[in-house]
Design a binder for these strands. Structure first.
Length: 796
DNA sequence: CAGGTAACCTTTTTT
DNA sequence: AGGTTACCTG
């Protein structure tokens, strides 16, 4: 879309007058209010290109985003316009992490400080709570962590906080806060909030540094400004005093991170903060059909606290929005999966056209199951995160400890993993000694002889661990790959895994370790010069699985509504649009939270380019219990008279008859057959053209040609039946995996070809189904692959 | 101290 | 349903 250009005229050619006026703006503050699909990224990237062409040095520009994904895309598009320029683009957190590396000593850290992820900081929080000695009967660790996080995002210090009127929970949290903070400093560590907090403080407390940085980053751009919290606001503000060339883009209607401290006032009051601001409104939508846009518009009009804007588009009318009503989550997943298979089979769509959004991660499970059963390739953004797996965290913890001996959370994790006779009591005593002396636990372990409470045996064990650590630490400067292989070997972690892993199913810890080592080797290769351990660990800490999302892959995408922001797909499904779920249960006591839920739905709707399907169920499994469901109140706010209704809940139509008969009561829930018709909670006004024929949803009569024979039901059989392997299924799904050999073709000894690594031999296979892994030797190197997705060809 | 089983409690969204 | 913790036994 954006062809390279070298002159202004080419740069501006395909832009509307509004877009142009934003692109050519150079000095002074600017606010771009950009509705969904209005070409915002286009404007931002073109503006960067324009600044560069105007002679602004690349190092004076910084573009801040909320996800790495957004930054990567921006970088790619700027590079297409103006190749080879090194403009700083990245997330707020990464920006701060890098500044903090440099000025660590000014906030009491060392430059090799660690970044605690959420689970690390939860561990640290528990310890801080214990050290504070407060009662947790009225405030759970989670709640305390939450309150402290909010306080940090608002730049509230412990003493200011304690001086305020506080609820009992806040009181507890405010007491834990300084202790927690002190322990973080002792550990030479920060949590996610600290990255912002420390930098904000740095700028506030060091006028000289502030003005230096202000002068350095003269042109600052912030994407998704509606999602900034006070800390981020302070940072941006601090960098735009002498050079107020601050350009922010955002859309108040897409603010969905209030729970994380985002303050809508930042964008609503921008014009007050910067009186001379230039404001540009982008309201024309280039993404969606009018049908989709009307649904979005009618919905969002119900929010009271917003700036009215008029969304319009020149696109073709397109298909009506569909509302699908299902018996339960399984029915919902099956009928959507069937439809996807169908559309792909008649070649009207490709897997990557589809996205399925939901409010909670757990809802993806049923859909995942349905897609897997049909052999449809899919990816889950933010499923079980790779870096959260036990074995991966274990190995990473060793790395963390090598990099930063103060990383107490890592030490606590690995000191007895693999088990080496150091029990909970011993760890507790080490912690106590460390706390009393304000030293890291590893230091306490070195001084184990001073801890009287410890038994002789325990002391020996601890000392042996310290020796082991010192041995591993000698390799700190080796390549990541060598370091990881060495430590896995020295700690006998590989043996431990083999012993522990009962290997009951397809999750293969060993393969995950291999994958981690491959990632390390990859990092070594990409950073031959600057590839230090702390950069690697920083990278790992600041990537989310949202960033792993790959739109070039031919796969259906499953993700939460939150993760969908900033993306677009031809065909979108939003599932579970139900009361207590889409306005989430815990958001209903508060008006502003309720409106945020509505915006969340709005964001989901406006991701759709061509078709949009919304679904809700009559019943749903919640925490292992089947419960009746009330449809979302938001459904009544849509233009119901122009929405097509499909009911798959009673009888799924002639096309599915064979399935229903071949799998009678596989789910063991006859009550649905009995009660479904009497369910009166689904009354959305006048439209009564409900149909029991799912066929109505599909695009044409060709659909009946699908090669779904009765002996291969598209519905996954009961749990006792084996899951068919991908590739073995004779379904429409085969059509799209045709260029990939069936998974069963890869065996030990098979010769394969990889694009980058060349020809290799499979030396081991493990796991089943989509998780099946193969370890391949390419000459000197070895790599692990997920067979279902790896770009491997059979070499003959 | 380690490993197993039973109770239990949890669930929103993410850098 | 699934994961975590608490308690019990070897």
């Amino acid at each position: 879309m954006d062809e390279p250009s070298t002159s202004n005229s080419t740069l501006l050619r395909h832009l509307t007058p509004e877009q142009q006026s934003a692109v050519v703006h150079i000095d002074g503050p600017m606010l771009t209010l950009a509705g969904p699909g209005s070409g915002k990224t286009r404007v931002v990237t073109h503006r960067i290109a324009h600044l560069l062409e105007h002679g602004i040095p690349e190092w004076q520009i910084a573009a801040l985003t909320f996800t790495n994904k957004a930054a990567d895309e921006m970088r790619a598009r700027v590079d297409a316009l103006v190749p080879g320029k090194q403009v700083w683009m990245g997330t707020f957190h990464r920006f701060c992490a890098q500044l903090l590396r440099r000025y660590a000593s000014m906030v009491g850290l060392q430059e090799n400080y660690s970044i605690y992820d959420t689970s690390d900081s939860k561990q640290a929080m528990k310890r801080a709570i214990a050290a504070t000695g407060v009662s947790t009967s009225h405030a759970s660790p989670d709640m305390i962590a939450n309150l402290i996080s909010k306080a940090k995002n608002k730049l509230i210090t412990p003493d200011v906080w304690q001086a305020q009127m506080l609820s009992p929970q806040e009181k507890v949290a405010s007491q834990v806060y300084p202790i927690y903070q002190q322990q973080l400093l002792t550990a030479n560590a920060v949590d996610f909030d600290d990255l912002l907090l420390h930098v904000a403080n740095l700028l506030r407390q060091n006028p000289e540094l502030r003005s230096d940085l202000d002068a350095h980053f003269r042109y600052i751009m912030v994407d998704e400004y509606q999602d900034t919290n006070l800390a981020q606001y302070a940072i941006v503000r601090g960098l735009s005093v002498d050079y107020p060339n601050l350009a922010v883009t955002g859309d108040p209607d897409q603010s969905i991170y209030g729970w994380r401290g985002a303050d809508l006032n930042n964008i609503l009051d921008f014009e007050k903060d910067y009186p001379d601001v230039k404001t540009v409104r982008l309201e024309q939508n280039y993404r969606s059909t009018p049908n989709i846009l009307r649904a979005a518009d009618q919905l969002i009009r119900h929010n009271r606290r917003r700036k009215q804007k008029d969304l319009f588009t020149d696109n073709d009318e397109g298909a009506p929005v569909t509302l699908r009503i299902c018996s339960d989550g399984f029915d919902e997943a099956d009928s959507i999966a069937d439809e996807i298979v169908n559309l792909i089979a008649c070649e009207t769509a490709r897997p990557s056209d589809f996205a399925i959004f939901c409010r909670m991660n757990s809802l993806t499970r049923s859909v995942e199951h349905a897609l897997r059963g049909r052999g449809v390739p899919y990816q889950i953004v933010n499923g079980v995160e790779f870096y959260q797996r036990k074995e991966v965290k274990d190995v990473l913890s060793y790395l963390h400890l090598v990099n930063n001996p103060g990383h107490d959370v890592a030490l606590t994790r690995v000191i007895n993993t693999p088990t080496r006779g150091i029990g909970a009591k011993t760890i507790e005593r080490l912690q106590g000694f460390a706390d009393r002396n304000a030293i890291p636990m590893l230091e306490a372990a070195r001084r184990v002889d001073e801890i009287d409470a410890l038994a002789k045996r325990s002391r020996t064990m601890v000392s042996k661990f310290v020796d082991l650590y010192d041995k591993i630490a000698t390799k700190a400067t080796a390549s990541l790959e060598d370091l990881m292989r060495y430590l896995v070997q020295e700690t006998k972690y590989d043996q431990y895994l083999e012993k522990t892993a009962s290997d009951s199913d397809d999750s293969s810890p060993t393969a995950n370790i291999d994958e981690l080592i491959t990632a390390g080797a990859d990092f070594d290769r990409r950073h031959p010069e600057d590839g230090s351990l702390d950069t690697f660990l920083e990278q790992v800490a600041l990537v989310s699985d949202t960033d792993a999302f790959d739109d070039s892959d031919e796969r259906v995408t499953l993700m939460t509504l939150h993760a969908s922001k900033g993306l677009e797909f031809p065909r979108v499904y939003i599932i579970g649009v139900e009361d207590d779920l889409l306005p989430h249960k815990r958001s209903k006591d508060d008006d502003s939270q309720f409106e945020e839920e509505r915006r969340l739905f709005f964001v989901g709707i406006t991701r759709a380019e061509q078709t949009l399907q919304i679904s809700c169920c009559k019943r749903r499994m919640i925490r292992g219990e089947r419960r009746p469901v009330i449809p979302s109140p938001f459904l009544n706010e849509l233009p119901l008279d122009e929405i097509k209704r499909v009911d798959t809940s009673v009888n799924r139509g002639p096309w599915f008859d064979s399935v229903d008969q071949s799998t009678p009561s596989d789910w063991d829930m006859p009550e649905i057959q009995v009660n479904a018709n009497e369910d009166t909670s689904f009354d959305f006004g006048a439209n009564t053209n409900q149909t029991n024929e799912a066929v109505a949803v599909f695009d044409g009569p060709d659909d009946s040609d699908i090669t779904m024979t009765p002996d291969e039901p598209p519905t996954e059989p009961s749990s006792t039946a084996a899951i068919p392997e991908i590739g073995a299924l004779k379904t429409a799904a085969d059509l799209m995996t045709v260029n990939r050999p069936p998974i069963t073709a890869f065996q030990e000894g098979t010769q394969v070809r990889h694009m980058d690594y060349g020809v290799g031999t499979i030396i081991a296979v493990s796991g089943r189904g989509p998780k099946r892994m193969a370890r391949v030797r390419f000459g000197e190197e070895e790599h692990s692959f997920r067979l279902a997705f790896a770009p491997l060809q059979i070499e003959d």
